[in-house]
């Protein structure tokens, strides 16, 4: 083994320099050219940062589109899912409670129209999106809370729907933060 120890030691040092110093520095340098400069893309309202484009925020007020339930309460210092198993009784009760809460706040929505993502926690706890349907079911509530016409709100949602990649791959979605920023602009 001794014969191999010295080359091991030297090779380790050389590779640390390559893989842990040069490589990330190079990527960091290149990413300065990327949107957000490699620090994460932020969204601003009136020049003030209100959030990161890709990171979801907690919205519980009736006047905003709600995001999904989160196991970390949308604090991006950490990230996690609920890790609840599909048959866990306690978990199923939580889901039932969320459905009930949703129905209380959205009396015009029928239970069978509630999309699953609005009552289930995301994997990261930071999911910035809901499905277009997940936004549509909230339109009536928001229109009422903001006292504007449902059509207008709905048109905004339609405008904010992000198509699948190249129109071909993956699901459609709506970025709630962006939607709510636009919503505040709507008068």
């Amino acid at each position: 083994m001794k014969k191999y120890l010295l080359p091991s030691l030297k090779l380790t040092l050389v590779l640390i320099i390559i893989c842990s110093v040069l490589y990330p520095l190079f990527i960091a340098a290149v990413s300065k050219l990327a949107p957000g400069g490699g620090k994460g893309e932020t969204l601003k309202v009136n020049g003030k940062v209100v959030g990161y484009a890709n990171i979801g925020q907690k919205f519980t007020a009736d006047k905003y589109f709600w995001t999904r339930p989160s196991a970390v309460d949308y604090n991006a210092a950490g990230s996690a899912g609920s890790n609840m198993g599909p048959t866990n009784a306690e978990y199923l009760k939580q889901v039932q409670d969320r459905i009930d809460t949703f129905l209380v706040h959205n009396p015009s929505v029928k239970k069978e129209d509630i999309p699953a993502e609005l009552v289930t926690a995301s994997g990261s706890g930071l999911d910035p999106n809901v499905s277009p349907h997940g936004a549509y079911v909230q339109v009536a509530r928001i229109a009422k809370a903001r006292n504007i016409s449902s059509e207008k709100v709905k048109a905004l949602v339609v405008q904010q729907v992000q198509k699948p990649l190249l129109g071909l791959f993956g699901p459609e979605k709506v970025n709630i933060l962006k939607l709510n920023i636009e919503l505040d602009q709507l008068k």
Partner: peptide
Amino acid sequence: AMEGKEVRF
């Protein structure tokens, strides 16, 4: 089944 999943995927 959306528990633990992200909408964008």
